[in-house]
C-alpha cells in the first residue's frame, strides 16, 4: 500500500489516494489531501468536509452525491445543498473528492 507523509508521520492510502484508516484522519491530513487534489480549503469546504465526517459517523457509509446534496440541503439550507454550489467547491465531484479529503472511503457505487 502507498504511504503519504504528513507532519513527520506516515499514513497508508489506497491506490487512488483514499486514506485506508478512517481514524488516522486529522485536519493536517485533510489539508495535505486537498493540496494533492488542487483544492484550496476555505470555511465553506470545511463545512462540507465536517458534514461528510458526521454523516459517515452516523451511517458508516460515504453518501452518493445526490444523497449528499439532499442531506446538505436539509442541514445547511438549499443555497448549499445543490449541485452548482458543491461542484464549485469540489470540481471533481463533491462525493468523490470531498470524501477523499475528509479521509472517508470512496462512496459506494463509484468506480
Amino acid at each position: 500500500m502507498p504511504m503519504v507523509e504528513v507532519a513527520g508521520k506516515s499514513f497508508e492510502v489506497d491506490e487512488e489516494g483514499y486514506l485506508t484508516n478512517l481514524a488516522d484522519w486529522n485536519k493536517e491530513i485533510g489539508e495535505y489531501l486537498a493540496k494533492d487534489e488542487k483544492v484550496e480549503l476555505t470555511d465553506s469546504h470545511w463545512e462540507v468536509i465536517n458534514f461528510l465526517r458526521e454523516y459517515y459517523e452516523e451511517y458508516q457509509i460515504a453518501p452518493a452525491v445526490r444523497v449528499l446534496t439532499k442531506a446538505v440541503a436539509k442541514k445547511l439550507g438549499p443555497d448549499k445543498g445543490n449541485n452548482k454550489y458543491l461542484y464549485e467547491l469540489f470540481p471533481y465531484g463533491p462525493a468523490k473528492q470531498a470524501c477523499k479529503i475528509a479521509g472517508l472511503p470512496k462512496p459506494t457505487g463509484c468506480i
Binding site: 452518493a64 462525493a95 468523490k96
Partner: peptide, 10 residues
C-alpha cells in the same frame, strides 16, 4: 460509477 452518472435522475 462516476459522480456524474450517480447524479442522473429521472
Amino acid at each position: 460509477m462516476s459522480d456524474m452518472m450517480d447524479d442522473m435522475e429521472g
